[in-house]
Amino acid sequence: MDRKRIAEAVERMLQKAVNELPPDSVEALREAEKKEKNPVAKEQLKTILKNIGLAKGKKVPMCQDTGTLTFYVKGKEGLKEAREGIEEGVRKATETVPLRPNSVHPITRKTEGNQPIINFEYADSECMEISVIPKGAGCENMSSLVMLSPSDGTKGIVASVLKVIAEKGRNACPPLVVGIGMGGTSEEAMQLAKKTLLVPLNEKNPDALAESLEKELLKKINELEIGTMGLGGSTTAIAVKIALRPTHTASLPVAINLQCWANRKATVRICGERVELL
């Protein structure tokens, strides 16, 4: 793997991610705007759609908060090149796209540019696949972990998710995409909840129970009537995506990652000299 090639690919994918909302999200927001009856919500959804078009057309970031940049790298070799290439690509994209320098020291609050978070995963492939989720802080700040008791069951899961969204949803820039990580340990559930935001909104969940829970939750979340930007209406979420992992017999971790309407993401595949922006 070539560091320079990775850096160039990362710069390009960041530009695409922050300027162009993926078509599945755009389609879901269009549908929501058509169905919405609340005039305040409808007006705001129209602004959101106009903003999406403007950002794509003018090649500028749709939101000033270009987020914390979380990367997922899949491959079997080239970890060193991937790390260096991503760091270089982020530095360049910060200038060229541009991205807002969002990273600060947690105590002094002094700016540190943009510091990516990089996750590696082994895959038995000659190609390397890199995905990025540039996620704004408004919605990230509203994400939560609930450690339930196994006997709380599905009812407890639904109640917890609804409670988090009822309390915090309006500040996460709804219509939301709700990523839920269920199972594993506390930290694994949180990671799953974010990573599941990469799944296309219209892709069916491979687990039938999770699929039916996604449908139930989406319906109930919208029945809360928090609405677009928290000002009421029938569109609070456009999708719920659940990721499952085996958990301890005494545990039921449920992590809830609230994603704003700007469900930004991009993936690039690098096979030798071939670079493909997916």
Partner: peptide
């Protein structure tokens, strides 16, 4: 006064 969250490109105009 509420502006529409995330609509940075529209606001910048």
């Amino acid at each position: 006064l509420s502006a529409v969250g995330g609509s940075g490109a529209v606001s910048a105009q």
